[in-house]
């Protein structure tokens, strides 16, 4: 028992020169990058006060002062969320089907993948700015933005689910002499439906959160109300809105996880 055998796992990068070179390089880059930040400590100290005022407002949130605006903002946001999710999910069905390589010929596939790529490339905030320019301020721009983002998200995940289905079930239904739409209804839909419903509920929850963000660039909803209160430095109103957003997000998140847990 005297021989001491030691073993350690092989390092991720085998060449020690390369390994330590990378560590040192990363450290140098980080210190140089920090040097370019030009931190203005005086301005930072000034801002800390304002930051503290904002945080302390959470101790005494004020709904009453702008109660009507807040209520209308939330109703608008929830309406935007519901309309945009319904429209986005409805459009993402054909796009998602068309983007599944095992169902459609190449040209349809490329077209649908193209739609998905465009929808997923631009962040919601950029799309919202574009739609605000097109439709003017207000919830219409918000609905268009959220629906647009929903199409990319839902279609991509639906298409990937369809590409992963068990091909033998499709084969079995085709072998009965079923037509293409019957194959979709009997062999494809049962395999992806549960997850599709789960994803739709999840997207509903994302869309509500996004509706608060895009309101800041003028796309309506509670985000607009929030932005107004910031501009007036009414931190107590802003705090009450933020607390309510957090509350609603937690409720929708819990509800959507409940729905998804039930599906199988």
């Amino acid at each position: 028992m005297g021989d001491s055998v030691s073993w350690s796992p092989p390092p991720l990068i085998r060449n020690p020169w390369l390994r330590y070179g990378l560590y040192i390089g990363a450290a140098i880059y980080l210190s140089l990058a920090l040097g370019t930040l030009h931190l203005n400590w005086a301005r930072l100290a000034q801002g800390l006060d304002r930051g503290w005022a904002f945080i302390s407002a959470f101790a005494h949130p004020d709904i009453a002062k702008h109660g009507r605006e807040i209520f209308e903002g939330f109703v608008e946001s929830l309406t935007m969320t519901a309309v945009a999710t319904a429209a986005g999910v409805a459009i993402s069905l054909p796009v998602g089907l068309g983007a599944a390589r095992n169902l459609v010929p190449m040209p349809v596939y490329l077209l649908c993948r193209g739609i998905i790529a465009v929808s997923r490339t631009f962040p919601e905030i950029i799309v919202a700015i574009l739609f605000v320019k097109m439709f003017g301020f207000g919830p219409l721009a918000g609905v268009a933005t959220l629906a647009f983002a929903t199409i990319g998200f839902m279609s991509k995940l639906l298409a990937e689910d369809i590409e992963d289905i068990d091909a033998s079930q499709v084969e079995a239904i085709r072998a009965t002499g079923a037509g293409p739409f019957q194959v979709l209804n009997y062999a494809v839909q049962p395999q992806v439906m549960a997850r599709f419903i789960g994803l739709s509920v999840y997207r509903l929850d994302i869309n509500f959160r996004e509706s608060a963000v895009i309101g800041i660039v003028g796309a309506g909803g509670i985000g607009a109300t929030l932005n107004t209160s910031f501009e007036r430095y009414e931190f107590d109103t802003a705090a009450s809105i933020l607390l309510m957003i957090i509350g609603i997000v937690m409720v929708t998140e819990y509800a959507s996880s409940l729905v998804r847990g039930r599906l199988r």
């Binding site: 033998s168 079930q169 079995a172 085709r174 072998a175 062999a187 049962p190 395999q191 549960a194």
Partner: peptide, 19 residues
């Protein structure tokens, strides 16, 4: 499709629609 109706197929892994 008409010809396929006249041929029943049975599979190794059953290929039932699970759900």
């Amino acid at each position: 499709r008409r010809a396929r109706r006249r041929m029943g197929m049975i599979f190794q892994e059953y290929a039932l629609i699970e759900r």
